[in-house]
Amino acid sequence: MIMEGVSGPAPEEMAFGEALGELEAIVAALEGGQLELEESLARYERGVALLRALQAKLADAQQKVTALIGELETEPAEDM
């Protein structure tokens, strides 16, 4: 049996929006109830992996700021 959409890139390496989109699609497919039981289980596992990766991304996030042009002045004290 082909397990469509179950395999895919490692969740940790996916862009946030991409992983979230796939997770939402998995939830929708499972809720549709049209999948074979085995495929439902496989998708569920994939969904859990995506969910963990997404939650980890949010928990560890540290904003990265890159100046492409010009040099950023440090923030003026009065704005702190």
Binding site: A61, K64, A67, G70, P76
Partner: peptide
């Protein structure tokens, strides 16, 4: 102020994105 307003807001709301600044 503008650039710092933006960076601060993005850090608070959505730190997972990379911010590319053209000054």
């Amino acid at each position: 102020k503008a650039v710092h307003d933006v960076i601060r807001t993005l850090s608070r709301r959505y730190p997972i994105a990379e911010v590319l600044v053209a000054g």
